[in-house]
């Protein structure tokens, strides 16, 4: 074999060896646990904190309101849709107040007239005309609209 080729092969061998060593040390440890990705990523993603705690947790302390709501037409409307994520509040209610949406615009997000909203699923009102100028909650209880 000519000298040049020998030297070149040597150079390539060194290069490939370096690549293999790098590959060995840089490959993350849980690689290929399930597939061509880091297996640990699954636990990392599932380890994130949940911000919405769902109705059962609220009901532990606010049982009257929860009870009220279960009897009304807003039964399927989760507390946290209106009050915002409750993970901090549920842990420490005194220092973490939730938002209380009292303005008309809030209820109208769901209840404005729009032909695209199915009429049989939700009752819609004319945003301007329906008891103009008054907050919805003066007549409707948000936790049980017909009270």
């Amino acid at each position: 074999m000519p000298l040049q080729v020998k030297r070149l092969l040597l150079a390539f061998a060194v290069f490939i060896a370096i690549m293999l060593v790098l590959k060995y040390f840089l490959t993350p440890d849980s690689w290929r646990e399930y597939g061509a990705y880091r297996g640990k990523a699954l636990t990392e993603i599932s380890g994130k904190e949940a911000k919405y705690v769902e109705m059962e947790t609220c009901a532990e302390c606010h049982d009257t309101i929860a009870g009220l709501k279960t009897q009304g037409l807003h039964v399927s409307v989760q507390c946290e849709i209106c009050h915002g994520p409750g993970y901090k509040h549920a842990d420490d209610p005194d220092n973490n107040d939730l938002e209380i949406p009292r303005e008309r615009q809030f209820c109208l997000r769901c209840h404005t007239k729009n032909m695209a909203s199915p009429q049989d699923i939700i009752k819609q009102i004319d945003a301007v005309e329906h008891n103009e100028g008054e907050e919805c909650i003066t007549c409707h209880n948000p936790h049980q609209p017909w009270l």
Partner: peptide, 13 residues
């Protein structure tokens, strides 16, 4: 690569 071969054979290679 520290090869100093200038022979005609090496050039042919």
């Amino acid at each position: 690569l520290w090869i100093s071969d200038t022979s005609p054979e090496s050039r042919k290679t």
